[in-house]
Structure formats: C-alpha cells, structure tokens
C-alpha cells in the first residue's frame, strides 16, 4: 500500500515535471519573437516587420520544415494562388540577361540601396552552366535543365512559377520566394526562365 502510494506520488511528480517542461517550451516558443523585437533594429531597407513570420514561415518553423502532408498541401495551394503570371502570357525573356541575374547575389540586405537592382542568387545554391565553377549546393544541380525536362511551354511556366514562389510546389523549400518577396521583377524572372529553358543557353550546352 505504502509502496503503491509512493509510486503514485512519484508518477504524479513525473507527470507534473513533464507538464512544466511543456509549459516552459511553450513559454520559450512565445518569447523568441519578443526577444528579437527588443534586440534588433531596423537598418536601411531591412525593416523590423521582417521579423514577423507569415503563415508559411510560422508552420515551417513549428514543424521543423516537415509539416503534416495535409498542411503542406494547403500551403502549396495557397501559395499557388499568390503567383502573378506575366500579363502577356510569355514566360521567356533573354537568357543573357538571365545569366547576370543568376550570378548576382546582391539585394534585400541592409546594405542594399532602395530601388537598386536585385540578383536571384541562383549560383549561391545551384549549379547551372558547367562553365561557372563557383556554385553552391543547397539546391539541386540545374545543369541541362531545359534539355533534360523538355523545351515545352508547360515547363517554361513551371520554371517561372517556381522562381516566383518556390513554396507553391514544396511547402517549406529552402529556396526564397523571389517573385512574391518583390526581389525579382516580372522581366527578370522571364530572363532567368530563359537561362534555364532556352536551347541556346549555356545551361543546356
């Protein structure tokens, strides 16, 4: 009897301990944003509202970038609706201009001037043309992208949409939403699409 009581008491303690650990976790979760708002300051174009998470960022942080299937589908559908396709219905621009945008890693930091031309940072994360040896590996190699996938209009549209909003296809992708965030203009996205999809582009040589 006594033993059972002690066991029960110990059990209750453990349960209480777990509950308070959970409570602490929830407290820390809630506090992170408050800490940042207290400890950061706006600098140049990098304003404080950048610390606020949108729904996608919130869910991806909460689920360590692996949200449940249904939730991921919901995010992707929601993001798909945010994509603005080119008004003239054409997805392809000039691949030479696209190459410069793919190379350029500047833009959107506190050092960048408002209204300056942003880059897409593609080479920071992807291999594209084999002529460029300095490329990152956070994303897959896109070398021969058009040649391998096929030079179809449907694929052009896919590339345009992927650059505009990567999360429309992969809920918690590590790739930025370069159109939605206002980083790249419609014309720039067309140019980069051509860099991946034009048969004459070095990406497809």
């Amino acid at each position: 009897m006594k033993k059972a009581l002690i066991a029960a008491a110990a059990g209750a303690l453990v349960v209480a301990g777990c509950a308070s650990m959970k409570e602490m976790d929830a407290k820390y979760d809630a506090e992170v944003v408050q800490w940042m708002k207290r400890d950061f300051h706006a600098r140049g174009i990098a304003t404080m509202d950048r610390l606020d998470q949108d729904e996608v960022q919130r869910v991806c942080t909460q689920y360590d970038n692996k949200p449940p299937e249904a939730m991921a589908k919901q995010i992707e559908a929601g993001e798909m609706k945010k994509i603005k396709l080119p008004s003239d219905g054409k997805y392809m621009g000039d691949w030479k201009a696209g190459q410069k945008i793919a190379q350029r890693g500047r833009g959107m930091t506190w050092r960048d001037k408002p209204g300056s031309t942003n880059g897409g940072s593609c080479y920071n994360c992807h291999q594209l043309s084999t002529a460029e040896l300095s490329f990152g590996t956070i994303g897959p190699s896109l070398n021969q992208f058009g040649k391998k996938r096929g030079y179809t209009v449907a694929n052009q549209k896919y590339v345009y949409e992927k650059i505009y909003d990567s999360k429309a296809f992969t809920a918690c992708s590590n790739m930025p939403r370069l159109g939605l965030s206002g980083t790249l203009t419609e014309q720039q996205i067309k140019d980069v699409t051509a860099y991946l999809m034009d048969p004459n582009s070095p990406v497809n040589k």
Partner: peptide, 15 residues
C-alpha cells in the same frame, strides 16, 4: 533554449 529557437526561426523576405 531561446538560442536554439532563434537558430531555427524562419523569417524575412527570403524565408
């Protein structure tokens, strides 16, 4: 604990 959460906190224009 806060540091760990800061490490995984996604935000900003580039997520």
């Amino acid at each position: 604990e806060i540091g760990k959460r800061l490490f995984f906190y996604r935000a900003g224009p580039w997520d």
